[in-house]
Amino acid sequence: MTHGKSGILALVGACTIWGLSGLFYKLLAHIPPIEVLAHRTFWSFVFFALILVGQGRLRDLFQAIKSPRSALVIFFAAFMIGANWFLFIMSIQISKAMEASLGYYLFPLVAVLFGVLFFGERLGRMQVLAVGLAALAVSVLTIGLGVAPWVALLISLSFGIYGVVKKKLTLGPVVSVTAEVMLLCPIALTVMYLSWSQGQAAYGANLRDTVLLMISGPITATPLILFSFATKRVALGTVGLVQYLNPTLQFLCAVLVFGEPFGQWHAIAFGLIWTALAIYSVATLRQDRLSRKVAMAASGVSTVVKNPKSDGSAKP
């Protein structure tokens, strides 16, 4: 199997696990979301730490948090991803899975906006139009339902801020996320202890819940490892397009499996979001192709300069 095909399969696998994870967390809907989050954090750390031990890279983990400034940045990233996980788990429990999917649909457009605010990136006309349509979609849903889609907004914003912080880190994805969940572990263990001391702990109460809570670690870690593997082998434009599989599967689970209502206001808002993402994707693909053409042209010029006889017109 070629690197490209294996990368695509890994990417599809990661997005499928993310997209269907709502089905898993629905099985834990009777457990308080903060307790589910605590176990997800702790068992994710255990799983990631075992991977680093197997790779002989455990020292990298402690090097990552050696500097107080680096540890503080990683902790802030950990807080953002922890908030994102909590919001998603809670959305499943309170029948807001559709709104959660909207949040992950909004995320690429929020990321574009954050690129302008924090990194001075410039938006093309199509990207400005896409962001405008996303804002219109949120406004339509707010007016139509009489309340802002707070779950979607908080999910997209927390993930967007997490992306901004991660862009400032030079750590690899596995080491970075392991450091994040490790720094969150004291909070997670405190939550677990309080649940146990009050006699309300789900872990150990029965075999089903105990196993499911432990599995939440690998379910969190596996797609990230697959995604990291894929991004090294697949073009960035392809990664961006395939990632929409995640919120699409979440949306389908919400409507078809969980039976959440999908009214006219939802239809209008999601229609605007899908249009915005289509426009954004086309703009991204064009930009990606242009960048590759420029890179190829620059490479060709460099080759000619280094070897002026390489054009075939000169005799050897």
Rank of each mutant, 00 (worst) to 15 (best):
H3W: 07
K5N: 08
G7H: 00
L9N: 03
L9T: 03
A10L: 09
A10M: 08
A10C: 08
L11H: 03
L11V: 02
L11D: 01
S21H: 01
G22H: 01
L23Q: 04
L28Q: 05
L37I: 14
L37K: 09
A38E: 05
S44G: 13
F45Q: 02
F47P: 11
A49K: 02
L50H: 06
V53F: 14
V53G: 04
V53R: 08
G54N: 06
G54H: 04
G56T: 05
R59L: 04
D60E: 13
L61S: 00
F62H: 10
F62E: 02
F62A: 06
A64E: 00
K66Q: 11
P68H: 12
F75W: 08
F76M: 14
F76K: 01
A78Y: 04
F79I: 14
M80A: 10
N84A: 07
N84D: 09
L87G: 09
L87T: 10
L87Q: 13
M90F: 05
S91L: 13
M98C: 07
M98P: 00
A100N: 03
L109W: 00
A111R: 02
V112T: 14
F114M: 13
G115A: 07
L117I: 15
L123R: 01
R125N: 14
V131A: 13
V131N: 06
A135T: 07
A135Q: 00
A137V: 08
V140T: 08
L141R: 09
G146M: 06
L157N: 01
G160W: 01
I161T: 11
L171Q: 12
P173M: 15
E180L: 09
V181R: 02
M182K: 10
P186F: 08
S195V: 04
S195C: 06
W196G: 05
A202H: 03
A205T: 15
N206L: 10
L207D: 05
R208W: 11
V211T: 15
V211I: 15
M214I: 15
I215H: 02
P218S: 03
P218H: 01
I219Q: 03
T220P: 07
T220W: 08
T222C: 12
F229T: 04
F229V: 11
T231G: 07
V234W: 04
V234D: 06
V239H: 04
V239F: 03
V239I: 15
Y244T: 09
T248M: 11
L249F: 01
Q250V: 06
Q250S: 15
L252S: 11
V255G: 04
V257Y: 14
G259Q: 11
G263D: 13
G263Q: 07
A267R: 06
F270T: 10
F270C: 11
G271M: 07
I273W: 01
L277M: 09
A278H: 00
I279A: 12
Y280F: 15
S281Y: 03
V282I: 13
T284L: 14
L290V: 09
A295H: 05
M296F: 07
G300D: 02
T303F: 10
V304A: 12
V304H: 05
K306F: 04
N307T: 10
P308I: 07
P308S: 06
P308C: 05
K309I: 12
S310L: 12
S310R: 14
D311S: 13
K315V: 15
